[in-house]
């Protein structure tokens, strides 16, 4: 029963979300960015969100994080309504955004300090540094770290409050191809170890297929969810297996089709 309650609490429900922003040159006009988005994430699920730039992926993530509020619709975590940012929803950006004035250790424990629980949970800082393999860099400042290391610190920092949902906004987008593949395994390892529900925004179709249980494809102007694809491949996945490549081909075709809607009319 307890387990059931916990799993329900870390599910995510998005219902009929609409969001628009004022135009820069005419504040009275508003441009719709998200137009009736609905989906839900089961507890412990890893779901990717792909789509062309400008389709409102990042806005959707900011809404779930509570950094923005929707024009209409409902955002639920478990059965609780999301109204403001909170430690139960972690967010990792493309830029690690580490606080440059804090050492690696102090960056990681920032979440505990912010929630005022550093004294009770002090021992966990070491666990998380080990979890991301950075214990030898505890006293280094962020400008000494490579991109991959910095992003690992950002992941540890976001995980230390034991968020129910982790929101990842193209977290590996700025890394080189090799580091990116290594970090994908790293994120998967963290996901498996912690059972955190994850919503991953990415540009990279391979990354989406490699990592997620389901893939949601968005279309732009205004942002809508066009299609949700279940990835029924066994883990660990082979990037060059026939099933992987076939799925990749399907998605590419669909994205091409969805991204060039006017072309559809011509043909």
């Amino acid at each position: 029963m307890v387990a059931l309650a916990e799993t329900e609490a870390s599910s995510l429900g998005i219902r009929e979300i609409r969001k628009s922003f004022p135009l820069p040159d005419d504040p009275l006009l508003r441009r719709p960015v998200l137009d009736g988005i609905s989906f839900s994430l089961a507890a412990g699920e890893l779901v990717s969100l792909i789509g062309p730039s400008g389709c409102g992926k990042s806005t959707l993530l900011r809404l779930i994080a509570g950094l923005e509020s929707p024009d209409s619709g409902e955002l639920l975590i478990g059965s609780e309504k999301i109204t403001q940012p909170g430690a139960e929803r972690g967010l990792v950006f493309q830029d690690p955004n580490l606080f440059p004035w804090l050492t690696v250790r102090r960056n990681i424990q920032a979440g505990l300090v912010a929630s005022g629980v550093l004294r009770e949970k002090h021992h966990e800082v070491d666990d998380f540094m080990r979890l991301v393999g950075l214990e030898t860099f505890a006293d280094a400042y962020p400008h000494h770290l490579s991109g991959g290391m910095a992003q690992r610190v950002a992941l540890a920092r976001a995980l230390i409050n034991h968020p129910k949902v982790l929101l990842l906004d193209e977290p590996l987008g700025a890394l080189d191809a090799f580091t990116r593949m290594r970090m994908q395994d790293e994120v998967l390892r963290l996901w498996r170890a912690r059972g955190t529900t994850m919503l991953l925004v990415t540009h990279d179709i391979d990354e989406a297929i490699y990592m997620s249980d389901r893939i949601m494809i968005m279309s732009p102007r205004p942002g809508r969810i066009e299609r949700i694809i279940s990835v029924a491949l066994d883990r660990p996945r082979q990037r060059s297996s026939p099933d992987f490549l076939r799925l990749r081909g399907d998605i590419l075709e669909f994205v091409h089709f969805a991204g060039n809607a006017p072309m559809e009319n011509k043909s």
Binding site: R62, G66, P85, F93, D95, N97, G111, A114
Partner: peptide, 23 residues
């Protein structure tokens, strides 16, 4: 983005001012 990160870590106003903005 520093302020956004701090908010998602559960920071209140005091943390945002004294531990993010001032540093």
């Amino acid at each position: 983005s520093y302020l956004d990160v701090a908010r998602t870590l559960g920071a209140g106003r005091a943390y945002l001012i004294f531990r993010v903005a001032i540093p």
